[in-house]
């Protein structure tokens, strides 16, 4: 564990908490893409499937973190699609998730480190996570704006994988550890946030709201 990965995971936890708080406090999921949250839930379940297969006692933080990620993302989906369904902006959350899931699944079968079920599920989860934020970014471009709290969520969500890139550089240099698939997907994922990062840093930090087109 290194400082980059630690802050990366904390940033990821913060993102999940910010979104949950936003929906719970405002009792509304306006401006939130339910599809992105569904895709994230699928990512966690397929990536941490080993939790369900051979359940090992929750003896370390990693197991606890995995369970937190899975339960929090499923609970967020429950809030969006059931509890606060009336506030779900289905018309603007219109990006076809199948266009993300099918290519990720296909690519996972073609490019992977080992052709076995768990490894392919893990690879699928990595590829899917790289593009899972697209419906959310698409929704913001359709509505033309993002609530400040949603911008903070996106900033934390984007920062988590950006910090993981620093973690991979660190691990390459000090542990000569390389996981090419995770690195390539993580770089793609972070690049997708660049436009948002620019808007966040030039606007939200100064107290303005993000309104598109910028």
């Amino acid at each position: 564990m290194n400082i980059f990965r630690l802050f990366g995971d904390l940033s990821h936890l913060a993102a999940i908490a910010i979104l949950l708080l936003k929906i719970w406090k405002t009792r509304s999921c306006a401006g939130v893409s339910g599809k992105t949250q569904l895709l994230f839930a699928v990512c966690f379940i397929t990536r941490y499937i080993d939790l369900f297969l051979h359940f090992v006692s929750l003896y370390n933080t990693e197991k606890v973190m995995k369970l937190i990620y899975i339960s929090a993302s499923v609970f967020t989906c429950y809030l969006i699609f059931f509890k606060f369904k009336a506030t779900y902006d289905g018309n603007h959350d219109s990006m076809r998730a199948e266009f993300l899931i099918v290519p990720a699944a296909g690519l996972a079968c073609l490019i992977n480190t080992k052709f076995d079920a768990i490894e392919i599920l893990w690879t699928f989860s990595i590829y899917l996570e790289a593009v899972a934020i697209l419906p959310q970014l698409f929704l913001i471009s359709k509505t033309g704006e993002a609530e400040t709290i949603t911008s903070h969520y996106l900033f934390a969500q984007g920062s988590y994988r950006a910090l993981y890139i620093l973690n991979w550089i660190y691990r390459y240099h000090y542990e000569s550890h390389v996981d090419t698939i995770a690195i390539v997907a993580g770089v793609v994922q972070t690049i997708l946030y660049c436009d948002f990062f620019y808007l966040y840093i030039t606007k939200v930090v100064k107290g303005q709201k993000i309104v598109l087109p910028a």
Partner: peptide, 10 residues
Amino acid sequence: QHASKKHDEL
């Protein structure tokens, strides 16, 4: 079980 290259990150 064979020691598959474990993914040790979240």
